[in-house]
């Protein structure tokens, strides 16, 4: 069809749609102004305030002053590095689980659901509308100490294995790392499924037939055709899962114990209970920097730069 579309080659579609009229020169700036102002004042500026708070010293009563007290960072890191590591580890585990669990469902919706496609889609999205806190509390019931799940895991000797791995302790699942990771996985699973589905749905079904025609077995077809083509979905899905999971403190608080505290719990406690603002700000700043660094490296390496 390219021969039919006769547009002057290297122009943005915007240029074609709206020929430059003198009156319209400032229109984009007026359109952008309120929203961008909002983001600058309530997103970017706070980041600067936070950076400044993190190098202040003082007390609540006497007020804080910027003293370039970088020792706060050192202290925060040396005291809370286990929580940092734990956050990364839990979030990575949850992300991996989301990918393993989410991929078949996204694949099912995209290629195998037929007329059930819309219904399954609704069932994936609808839980969003029940407060996630209520749903997370339901896991307390599901994983209860004398509930059927723990019973089954116990009698199948799965708990022996997870105990040995340090994921669970004794006859319990609640208040263990396993419960927290399970909750994180559950909470962010739709964020994995939706981008996966979007990129799978774009794949032409005939590609599967072509691969089969060219002597690829189903598994090879998946490895060589389907999965590579779904990479944009995999990348944005893992990001959308990992980032919020790493900063989360709700699952750890509701399903875990003091031994499963993540960095989000620490920041929350420092800020809202202990009121040690510099330490809290420093921790938050480190978390932000770490996540941004990881995301940047990840996006670079996976080669998908245009996620937005």
């Amino acid at each position: 069809m390219s021969t039919l579309t006769e547009a002057p080659p290297p122009l943005a579609p915007a240029e074609e749609a709206e020929p430059p009229r003198k009156r319209g020169r400032f229109t984009p700036y007026w359109l952008l102004l309120p929203g961008m102002l909002w983001l600058v004042v309530f997103f970017a500026l706070p980041m600067i305030y936070q950076a400044s708070t993190s190098v202040q010293t003082g007390s609540l009563e006497e007020g804080y002053k910027v003293t370039w007290h970088f020792v706060t960072y050192w202290n925060a890191l040396s005291e809370y590095w286990p929580q940092f590591l734990r956050s990364v580890f839990y979030a990575a585990a949850a992300t991996l689980l989301c990918l393993l669990l989410g991929y078949p469902l996204a694949y099912l919706i995209a290629f195998r659901a037929g007329r059930w496609r819309n219904l399954i889609m609704i069932l994936v999205i609808a839980p969003f509308f029940t407060s996630f806190l209520i749903r997370t509390l339901a896991w307390k019931t599901i994983l209860a100490d004398n509930g059927p799940v723990v019973h089954a895991l116990n009698s199948l000797h799965v708990l022996d294995l997870t105990n040995w791995l340090g994921w669970t302790a004794g006859d319990r699942v609640l208040a263990t790392p396993l419960a927290v990771v399970c909750g994180l996985t559950y909470n962010f699973l739709p964020f994995m499924i939706l981008p996966l589905y979007t990129s799978l749905e774009r794949i032409d079904g005939r590609l599967h037939e072509a691969a089969g025609d060219l002597y690829a077995r189903p598994w090879t077809t998946f490895r060589k055709v389907t999965f590579p083509l779904s990479m944009p979905g995999v990348v944005s899905g893992t990001l959308l899962t990992f980032i919020p999971a790493a900063g989360d403190y709700v699952n750890s608080e509701l399903l875990g114990s003091t031994d499963t505290r993540m960095i989000g719990n620490v920041i929350q406690t420092q800020f809202l209970r202990i009121l040690d603002y510099p330490t809290a700000a420093a921790l938050s700043f480190i978390l932000m920097a770490a996540i941004l660094a990881m995301v940047t490296i990840y996006i670079r390496r996976s080669g998908t730069e245009d996620l937005v």
Binding site: F43, T53, G247, G264, S284, L287
Partner: peptide
Amino acid sequence: VNSLIFLPMAMPEVVMAASLLTLFLN
């Protein structure tokens, strides 16, 4: 503009929450 729109989606909530609180307190 594009990065200012992308960043809030790539930021853990707790970071945005904490920094916004420092702004409001200040």
